[in-house]
């Protein structure tokens, strides 16, 4: 499942970087995550619940923040396991200056699905990817506006 998108935020690169490096924020913006437990520097165990259309599953997994180049890029390496299938993937994030002082966050990655969801979900995967992207950006916006308010 290709995950690709970008969004402009009305804050500086550094601000955006600091939000994204905050485990609490990370937990908040990653769809479905209910627990994010640090296991080391930039490493976390996660528990998440996904509910998209006809599919509902509890995932347990790991999330690592890697390839950090403050404040312009990093990547998330993750593994999410469930009874209905698993997701393994790496998503690269690029933070760059945009016009009028805002900051652009672009992400690009490939999430490999396995198990039942890989076999059954093809018809709607692109919808799932779009939904996840939308949710991430929306919750990040909400968080930013809440914390800057």
């Amino acid at each position: 499942m290709l995950v690709k998108g970008n969004h402009e935020f009305n804050i500086s690169k550094e601000m955006l970087w600091s939000y994204l490096m905050d485990p609490e924020v990370l937990a908040k913006i990653t769809p479905g995550i209910s627990e994010l437990e640090p296991t080391g520097e930039d490493s976390y165990n996660t528990i998440s619940n996904m509910k998209i259309g006809p599919v509902k599953g509890s995932f347990k997994g790991k999330l690592n923040v890697i390839d950090k180049e403050e404040p312009s890029s990093f990547a998330i390496d993750m593994e999410q396991l469930s009874k209905i299938g698993n997701a393994h993937g790496k998503i690269s994030m690029k933070i760059s200056d945009a016009d009028n002082g805002s900051t652009n966050l672009a992400f690009n990655g490939d999430v490999k699905l396995s198990g039942m969801i890989a076999r059954m979900g093809q018809r709607v995967l692109s919808g799932v990817a779009n939904l996840i992207i939308k949710e991430v950006f929306a919750s990040l916006e909400t968080h930013i506006s809440e914390s800057t308010a």
């Binding site: 006809p54 599919v55 509902k56 599953g57 009874k83 209905i84 039942m116 969801i117 059954m120």
Partner: peptide, 13 residues
């Protein structure tokens, strides 16, 4: 006819 197939496959509970 949407729900039962998803429940059968255990994609949903």
């Amino acid at each position: 006819h949407s729900l039962i197939p998803a429940l059968k496959l255990r994609l949903n509970s």
